[in-house]
């Protein structure tokens, strides 16, 4: 096992390379730019294709092209750039093309600032562009997972022929931790059943998202919903700590889950029965698992760097059966340990 100190953004590129990605298209934006830098550094020596696009619209459409050709392509950006990509993501979903998109979230709205936030939750988890589609969304919380989830993202993107996001934030992108390199490197094979690869076998293939006939488009939309239900059934991932006997369950993803973990440990030391529920997939949201917890008399506390976007989904998932409290910060600030501890104590009545 080869272990090195690696930055979160670099780990994404390492994951993509070991996952057999041979194309990267991207546009600079803080705090995601290192992904672009590292791709420019590591793709060409392996003969893999790197291109700095003229815009995020161009990046995502270059991805659309490479994905349509059956290649393992990815791009990375942050809030404002992700907003610009939404048209392309809708087309990817409509044409059922596999593409990995890494979002290193920053603070909005508008230009906002470059500090960390988790405010792209809705625009990423709910689809984001026009039409009845969803993206698989993976939420890492360490440098190691930045790599591992990027690898998983490629696997799921091709398994389900759908765009897959790795949703991280400025802290995860910028931090350095010990990192173990992947055990295997994937040499991908083009799927000739659907890809348009410019050869005899794929000459009759067509990539499009047009269904002029209303009945046909409805049929296609329904098929997409079946796919999302299958994804929900088979791809849901979450991590639970100390939830068995908990009265209070912190719910958090990404960097907020690291802060929540510290708060949980503190609270346990003080004799408070606090657990942590961390969705590792945001779509599919781990509904079944959270509902099992909601069967008990617990209070949930959503810990997030957004305006209750996660808390809302949590309420929806449990049909508002239990109280859902919110601890959050906005504007580029991290939720602090004190904030979480105060909320825990308030809920516990201490």
């Amino acid at each position: 096992m080869a272990t090195k100190l690696i930055k979160g953004n670099t780990a994404v590129v390492i994951g993509a390379l070991y996952a057999g990605s041979d194309c990267f298209f991207g546009y600079p934006i803080t705090p995601a730019s290192e992904i672009l830098h590292e791709a420019s550094r590591f793709y060409p020596p392996l003969g893999r294709k790197f291109l700095q696009a003229e815009s995020e619209e161009a990046s995502i459409n270059m991805c659309y092209g490479a994905a349509a050709a059956g290649h393992r392509v990815f791009t990375a950006s942050s809030g404002p750039g992700i907003s610009l990509m939404q048209e392309g993501v809708s087309y990817l979903a409509g044409a059922e093309l596999p593409t990995v998109i890494v979002d290193i979230m920053r603070a909005g709205p508008g230009l906002g600032n470059i500090g960390p936030e988790q405010s792209d939750y809705n625009q990423v988890v709910k689809g984001g562009g026009h039409g009845n589609y969803k993206n698989i969304v993976l939420a890492p919380n360490s440098v190691q997972e930045m790599c591992d989830y990027t690898m998983l993202a490629f696997e799921l993107a091709f398994k389900w022929r759908t765009p897959v996001y790795v949703l991280a934030d400025g802290v995860l992108g910028q931090m350095i931790e010990p990192f173990t390199f992947p055990e295997k490197a994937i040499a991908p094979v083009i799927d000739k059943t659907w890809a348009v690869n410019g050869n005899a076998e794929t000459r009759q293939n067509l990539v499009t998202s047009i269904f002029l006939d209303f009945a046909q488009l409805e049929e296609f939309n329904n098929r997409l919903q079946v796919k999302y239900a299958d994804i929900e059934r088979t791809e849901t991932r979450c991590e639970q700590q100390n939830t068995d006997d908990a009265d209070i369950i912190l719910v958090a993803y990404g960097i907020s889950s690291r802060i929540a973990k510290t708060a949980m440990d503190n609270a346990r030391r003080q004799g408070l029965k606090v657990g942590l529920f961390r969705p590792q997939t945001l779509f599919p949201f781990p509904k079944k698992q959270i509902n099992a917890l909601a069967d008990k008399n617990v209070t949930f506390i959503a810990v997030e760097m957004s305006n209750g976007q996660l808390a809302d989904d949590l309420r929806l998932a449990i049909s508002c059966r239990r109280p859902v409290e919110l601890v959050n910060r906005l504007g580029g600030n991290l939720v602090t340990l004190d904030q979480v501890m105060n909320k825990i104590k308030a809920v516990a009545g201490k």
Binding site: C23, G65, T202, V207, T208
Partner: peptide, 24 residues
């Protein structure tokens, strides 16, 4: 031929992606 339908105005970007990926 092989065919790809794309978003409004983005054909050169998609074409770039196809070309870089496949060299066809």
């Amino acid at each position: 031929t092989g065919n790809i339908q794309v978003a409004h105005g983005r054909a050169p970007a998609v074409a770039t992606g196809v070309s870089r990926a496949t060299d066809k």
